[in-house]
Design a protein around this nucleic acid. Sequence first.
DNA 1: CTGAAAGCGCTAACAA
DNA 2: TTGTTAGCGCTTTCAG
Lengths: 353, 353
Amino acid sequence: MTDFTDNPPGNDVPKRRRNSGGITLRDVARLAGVAPITASRALNNPSVVSDAIMQRVKDAVAQTGYVPNMLAGGLASRKSRLVAAVIPTITGNVFLEMVQSLTAALAQHGYQVMLGQSGYEDSREDELLEAIIGRRPDGVVLTGIMHSAAGRKRLLSSGIPVVETWDLAPNPIDMLIGFSHEKVGRAVAEYLHARGRRRVATLGADDDRAQRRMRSFSDAAITLGMAAPGEAAIPALVAPAPTNTGFGRTGLRELLEQHADIDAVFCSSDMVALGVLTEAQALGIAVPSQLAVIGLGDLAFARELHPALTTVRIDGALIGATAARFILDRSQDRDVGERILDIGFSIIERDSA
Amino acid sequence: MTDFTDNPPGNDVPKRRRNSGGITLRDVARLAGVAPITASRALNNPSVVSDAIMQRVKDAVAQTGYVPNMLAGGLASRKSRLVAAVIPTITGNVFLEMVQSLTAALAQHGYQVMLGQSGYEDSREDELLEAIIGRRPDGVVLTGIMHSAAGRKRLLSSGIPVVETWDLAPNPIDMLIGFSHEKVGRAVAEYLHARGRRRVATLGADDDRAQRRMRSFSDAAITLGMAAPGEAAIPALVAPAPTNTGFGRTGLRELLEQHADIDAVFCSSDMVALGVLTEAQALGIAVPSQLAVIGLGDLAFARELHPALTTVRIDGALIGATAARFILDRSQDRDVGERILDIGFSIIERDSA
DNA sequence: CTGAAAGCGCTAACAA
DNA sequence: TTGTTAGCGCTTTCAG
């Protein structure tokens, strides 16, 4: 390769640069015979550059293998083209669809996604926020609502567009795409009641959203007369999030030991439901005739189980795509329309309930 | 808040700065009564700063809510503290454990992970590489081997530490953490043979790694006499990656229609195996007595199925953690030891085979 | 242990 | 349409 350093081989220069040797826009510009800013325009805003120069710059880029330094570009332009996505844990499965579609939608516009795992406890949240804000992302997508006042304030004062998701709240930090967990619980209770179930139970995670679903399920169930006489709440088992298939198996067993008459179980995720289905089969309990099972998430395998799993579907892909659009709009000052969106949910009726 | 701009309220200044109004290290330094560089040292290299100054800087940070701009820091120091992780698709499930442990291990050292989804086709690979290199990450973790010569060259000349994973290759770009897919295929064939299976088949994805597993499985099976007389290969069905539970169900049915005597199926993932198990149950085929089923991945639910799924386990968490260590070592010029690692695999014997 | 100066590689602002 | 200049916010280099 040619010598691209800036220093003339001269003598008395008070030299002190630490040029890394990498190819910079300057090198491209020199090769193309234009000013750096012109090369920059050719790359980022082709329409304002003449065709001739455009071609020369392109050639120079090809020849040198130049790759723009987005750190530098981001610093200068205040646009990092980075979006941070925070999910409780990637192994939780439920949020993958959202991350997938968010990543894909953003990638189309030259944006990348930085992943943050918050865990289900709020402990490391502060470090995470610091790490995120430090990158000056053009957007932050949160799973759930930011509850801590400190976190809300931090995010707010950072000025970064924030999308909270998977929940509804009266005062979002900024933008919101979610659904009502209370409604989910109630809808599932009504669904089961309408199909003749009278002794329902829940297998839930200990996180806030799951708890609210389960509580409203329980309340509705009681209102509908689906609790054992004299009970103030329906049978419920709770496990640390993220819940898994194992919890479904042991949970069902425990539930039945204590309440032999249970005829329906509402699970906090399809993974749990898979465990319930499996345990029911192992125990020789017929689903749905003896026991109805409802999951949450509508993961890909749900429809393939035997019996096919009835479940609550949340359109994660829609959440991700919409969040991407919101953020992209924002970063172009295209500030159109309402930024609070209830995407609802649906109960996918299949064979297990 | 106080006025933190740099401009004296003066008059004739040839002003032209575009200070964003955000709090910068300069503001912190001024508040602490030190030079910016001293504040920088207090934050990044506390040991070289006197206790008194340390305290003043800390106070100033707390008071202002200062969050370092990592874009600026990265540009100046050539350390982005960003690591790019490329996986085929996040919804594939198999690689999550790796991403999870990579993210966690790096987070402990102040590094973040940027996610890239390559899809299973190599089409968008080039854009992805450009996007990645443009961020000047301190490391890139690739799922699988980079096959394209252009990609290899690009990465190589970027000077970024690269870890290829989930495979073995004679000439990795840089570092490598993987296992032999050929050995997996052979080991599974031998495992089934040793347990008396004589008519085996595969349900595989169409990606390169799955194909090599299946081919070597087939070869070994034939050598061991597990093919129908006169056949040059065992029955095999292929679907586009990522394969799913549905493929397991339809695949088993198809396989049996054409080869009623099949007594074992090796699946390209636990998800597929779940489908096979489900279909077998629906068809009234006893597992393992009539049909043995082996998966790959040892996902969390595998042990919870009924029968519990025998599967090939790859320690994704180890891959992720090791990749993190390799990259961290590199970024500190701690260049110790061999950087090619075969982590092997194990067949987890459970009830389905 | 502390500081002044000079960039890192890029783009906004202004000028031609 | 193109160029000049002056930073973006931080850290390296060199000097005290």
